[in-house]
Design a protein around this nucleic acid. Structure first.
Lengths: 144, 144
DNA sequence: TTCATTTCGGATATTTTAATCCGAAATGAA
DNA sequence: TTCATTTCGGATTAAAATATCCGAAATGAA
């Protein structure tokens, strides 16, 4: 479904969102530890997310990553996924055709369009705020 | 979503099902050509599907692959997918946890269970016969 | 039997994804 | 300024997925 990079990216941004809501800037080391992710690989992903303007990075002591408080509610899961995996998840054909549409569909096309649309809606409607709130409540977890 | 191997496997079994309904046994070469798939890689996948009893293979001249006519309606997409990709698509966690359930869910768990169940139902309810019929009608395609 | 045809199975090669390493650059504090 | 801390960015390595190659085995027909 998602690439490993994207999985780490979602966990990381969720954690950063939670801490940012409490005005805490967090370091790469802390993020990797809290999300059970490989440190160096996570660094690359965070860099990419910073370039895509999903989060803000700061170098030097007391540096780290953050998401401006007023943006936590408007950054959607779809933004994170798109920044890392692109749009194949929304637009890609289940059987790998470069193009696949109602006009000339693959055998699975019609059985998948509904599901894909639902997925798309879900990703676009779920904000980092939504994910952070549940994490804070303790009803979801970033590691086991 | 699916691995490349699984994509090729679905296309191949759909094609074999269509031909088997017309009592035609088909060769690897023909299958690969009709589904626009790499020959040698497709061979491996068909071998695997034969071992999983999704289809029957026959060596020698006039050999090739087939699906017993009376089984085309009872072999489901889920059987093909399971034989190649296993059950991660049904049971795997969206964020890669080894285990992920209502008791200790990842941040996406609850947003995904509905979708995953729908996918599961769809794969279990769609038979090779269903796919072959649409292909025969000319409303779906195995290559573009 | 002989031969051409076809799948089988193991080894190998290529490509993509995942992950690490390390010096450079930025930054804040002493 | 000096130094420790932290991210940045490029190079490299490792692992997994994708794909190919080729000789062996099976099989049906001449």
């Amino acid at each position: 479904m998602f690439s490993k990079a994207c999985e780490y990216g979602i966990k990381a941004t969720t954690y950063i969102a939670l801490q940012s809501l409490q005005n805490r800037r967090v370091s790469l080391k802390e993020i990797a530890a809290e999300t059970d992710s490989p440190v160096a690989f996570t660094a690359k992903i965070l860099q990419q997310l910073a370039k895509s303007d999903v989060l803000k990075s700061n170098r030097g002591p007391y540096g780290g990553f953050e998401i401006p408080r007023d943006r936590v509610k408007s950054i959607m899961l779809a933004d994170v996924v798109f920044a890392i995996d692109g749009n194949t998840i929304y637009e890609g054909c289940a059987l790998g055709f470069d193009e696949c549409n109602a006009d000339q569909p693959c055998p699975l096309h019609n059985k998948f369009i509904g599901l894909r649309d639902e997925l798309s809606v879900m990703l676009k409607q779920t904000s980092l705020y939504d994910l952070a709130v549940e994490l804070k409540k303790g009803v979801t977890y970033l590691r086991r």
